[in-house]
């Protein structure tokens, strides 16, 4: 896994569908691996391939016009199952950023824990991105984490996005949560001795 997040400019893969659940991102039958690698192959499996495993021509990942490291999707992206495999498959496929007007909570955490940046934009800005890409599939999107903005190259339209300061530091420096939690061992022991019951 590529740790650390650097600012990037990239073409985008548009997926203007709402409520994309993690069962679509990676169907359950592909969750049987016991490592984190190789899930990219089955990213959006049932939208990408038909029953005979032939690529579905009308699905965006099979359209050579659209590629890049930024996925742009409709609202409530990543709802449903908590499977972190969804984030692993996006990362393994090569995505570093997912843009949507709304993210499901667990997915957002899972993405951040895998150094994928979920960028939440307004519904209006999301539509602007879709329009820009529809007009020109080679349209560039610039994502700047330090300054917390996202910009459409062709039009210069941009929007600020939120990210909490702790997660921003983790992404920029490649830290993960366990490093921080392990540093709290004294506090954890103190907490445990203060509670007579396990609740």
């Amino acid at each position: 896994m590529e740790k650390k997040f650097a600012n990037l400019s990239s073409t985008v893969v548009p997926l203007p569908i709402e409520n994309i659940d993690t069962d679509q991102i990676i169907p359950a039958r592909f969750l049987k691996a016991t490592t984190r690698e190789g899930f990219g192959e089955n990213l959006f499996r049932d939208w990408r391939y038909d029953e005979q495993n032939a690529p579905r021509k009308d699905f965006v990942l099979n359209n050579p016009l659209y590629k890049g490291r930024i996925l742009v999707a409709g609202k409530n992206f990543g709802c449903g199952s908590s499977r972190e495999h969804a984030a692993w498959s996006l990362a393994d496929y090569g995505f570093k950023v997912v843009v949507s007007s709304f993210f499901a909570d667990i997915f957002k955490n899972n993405a951040l824990n895998n150094f994928i940046l979920p960028v939440q934009v307004s519904e209006a800005f999301l539509q602007q991105i879709f329009r820009a890409v529809e007009k020109d599939p080679a349209a560039q999107l610039e994502v700047n984490l330090e300054e917390q903005f996202i910009r459409i190259g062709a039009t210069g339209e941009q929007e600020k996005f939120d990210i909490n300061p702790y997660k921003k530091t983790c992404l920029l420096n490649g830290y993960d949560d366990i490093d921080y939690l392990l540093s709290l061992s004294k506090e954890i022991n103190t907490y445990e001795t203060s509670r007579p019951f396990n609740f």
Binding site: E84, N110, D177
Partner: peptide, 12 residues
């Protein structure tokens, strides 16, 4: 929670 968080809980 996700698997990274499962690891957090196992570890701490």
């Amino acid at each position: 929670i996700g698997t990274s968080e499962v690891e957090q809980v196992l570890a701490t």
